[in-house]
Design a protein around this nucleic acid. Structure first.
Lengths: 214, 214
DNA sequence: CAAAAAGTAGACCATATGGTCAGTTTTTTG
DNA sequence: CAAAAAACTGACCATATGGTCTACTTTTTG
């Protein structure tokens, strides 16, 4: 109803995707202010005016991109319940987040930059949907603790640390690449995933699910 | 010999400090490109030309600031030895890094932004001094493991995760503030520190030193 | 105390950049 | 197939910004 021919495979929708992809690449490398519309245009191989045709302004493009990125964050962990197994649920969540860091590092970087700068465009989201999500997750972890399924770890901090460790592999890849002497490949991410899972689960006094052992 | 009257309490040195402090605040909030020399001048309450008088260019000021920041990272962990106690050494390191996140969040943010953007100005440092530091620390942790003092955790990943968790509290403070409904005070940082120490040490199968229990 | 060095500051400029406009071409649709 | 809608694009503009130049004032020093 809202969007009739715009969301289809129509030429407009396709171009929007191209532009968003180009913007993601550029913003991740140079930040919002550091990226010019011209750069995005070059990356997208479209004239500059075309960019402004699809997105009212540079800021409009940025906000649209940010929205796109936030929807990527959706995970199976959103739908976990008190009846689920904490070890498997948490391990799966870590693994999913690590996969995101590997496959969408630019999205992670843009998100990080936005938060670093005080989250001017995400504050509203943080104070509404995100808090609600958080409360839901915390309640479930708390109930796992009360059921004696895992050690009494503050669920809020637990989530902070999962985010910190997993996102680190995307956000700080430049540092990691220097220190490892090579950029991380799929196998390295798998090893890193095992390490994070081990860390997180041992912090919760949980056993590592078979599928994540070695 | 190199600097005679410049490094003293002379008017020049004092102004440089004022400018660096102003630049730290501005760059942390808006990034390198997002910060104008005029903004820094306003923050420092000095005319713009004065900034360019002390630092050849905006980039020069940024590099000087980055150098300043890197020197802050020095820690007792730099001088730890194979004879030291891993539990105490690691717990102290985490505690020190958490204190840095609380007292110098802007420095942490600038560092994060630099790395996020591919570390253009830090790459040289990463590939030399930083690798050397890393190799030294990894060797010591490895020897702790060989001495049976701690579980066999990959030291490289261990350090990555310590950095990730501790720096997270500075870099993602905007998100944390929203989710906690208030900005973290000293007491919150102390609690967070205990949580990180618990996580890291349990990952290494180490007992928490008395001074960090409750 | 006079000369030199250091510090201060307004005027100015070249460039880059976000964004508008007006006109054209292509695609869709009744 | 013609009219309308969507897509495209070069020309243009106002503004912001990094940085220079020149001249003036204050501080240091021999």
């Amino acid at each position: 109803m809202a969007n009739k021919s715009k969301m289809d495979g129509s030429i407009g929708a396709k171009n929007k995707q191209i532009i968003l992809a180009a913007a993601e690449k550029a913003f991740a490398s140079f930040g919002f202010k550091g990226t010019s519309v011209q750069q995005i245009a070059d990356e997208a191989q479209l004239p500059k005016t075309n960019i402004l045709y699809y997105f009212k302004s540079k800021q409009g493009l940025y906000v649209a991109l940010l929205q796109d990125i936030m929807s990527l964050w959706n995970s199976r962990f959103d739908r976990v319940t008190a009846a689920d197994d904490p070890a498997e649920s948490l391990a799966d969540y870590v693994a999913e987040k690590m996969t995101m860091s590997r496959t969408h590092p630019q999205a992670s970087k843009i998100f990080a930059m936005e938060v670093l700068n005080g989250a001017p465009y995400l504050n509203k989201y943080f104070n509404t949907e995100h808090v609600a999500w958080m409360n839901g997750r915390v309640a479930i972890i708390q109930s796992w603790i009360e059921q004696g399924k895992m050690a009494a770890i503050d669920p809020t901090y637990l989530l902070f640390h999962i985010w910190a460790c997993t996102q680190h592999y995307a956000d700080f890849s430049a540092q990691i690449t220097s220190l490892l002497g090579k950029s991380m490949k799929r196998a390295d991410f798998e090893e890193a995933t095992r390490q994070v899972i081990k860390l997180v689960l041992s912090g919760c006094e949980l056993d590592i699910p078979r599928k994540y052992q070695e």
